[in-house]
Design a protein around this nucleic acid. Structure first.
Length: 204
DNA sequence: AGGAAGATCTACT
DNA sequence: GTAGATCTTCCTA
């Protein structure tokens, strides 16, 4: 049994950095061929609109980035270097934004995730945005799925309370130009956080 | 037609 | 730890 309620739409109707922070400890659930794959979200990044140089929404609205302007709580999925990135649309009313899920701690269906990724160590199974989408078989097919509905093939449910003390914060990983504020959030004591490096010139 | 991108894997110094 | 190949999707021209 799930035992957990999906997060309501209101949860995502806030500044993306607050949504990114508060998604830590929540549960990402994937229904796949009658199986249930679950993981705890342990690393996220917030992305903003046309003025964010690292955002897919930079410059202007295009067909592929349109979900970032749209209803919050929907999946926004795109491809980078042959890897699918899984985001949740999140912003204040009439705003633009999304939260990238960068890593999860595998909870359930680990054997299926391993078969999807062909790795033998759990620690490397879902500790990166491209790795977790491969493990959970997330691709463009799931773009714009409503993540607030637990009947859907993928959604996000309520999880554990996370003490503020356990949350670390840095600049975003892999981006060439970052904003001044730190927009990556992760659980300090969790071994399933990704190993990516910060490359932006604006890092402090 | 050509190139860049929020990444990953492999093979090295 | 660092460098290079990878070969998708969407951008710009």
């Amino acid at each position: 049994m799930l035992g957990q309620k999906p997060l309501p739409r209101k949860f995502y109707m806030r500044d993306p950095k607050f949504v990114a922070r508060d998604l830590l400890g929540k549960i990402l659930v994937r229904r796949l061929n009658g199986h249930l794959l679950e993981g705890i979200i342990v690393e996220t990044e917030a992305y903003y609109g046309v003025d964010d140089p690292a955002s897919r929404a930079k410059n202007s609205m295009k067909k592929y980035n349109a979900p970032m302007w749209g209803e919050v709580g929907l999946a926004f999925i795109y491809n980078v270097h042959n890897n699918w990135m899984f985001n949740v649309v999140a912003h204040e009313p009439n705003g633009i934004g999304a939260v990238l899920i960068r890593a999860i701690e595998p909870l359930r269906g680990i054997n299926i995730m391993m078969a999807n990724r062909k790795v033998h160590s759990i620690i490397n199974l879902t500790n990166g945005p491209g790795r977790l989408t491969k493990a959970l078989k997330i691709d463009k097919e799931l773009n714009c799925t409503d993540l607030t509905d637990d009947k859907n093939p993928i959604f996000i449910s309520n999880g554990r309370f996370i003490d503020e003390q356990r949350i670390g914060r840095t600049h975003r990983i892999g981006v060439s130009k970052d904003l001044d504020i730190e927009l990556r959030f992760y659980l300090k004591d969790n071994p399933f956080v990704s190993k990516g490096r910060i490359r932006s010139s604006n890092q402090s």
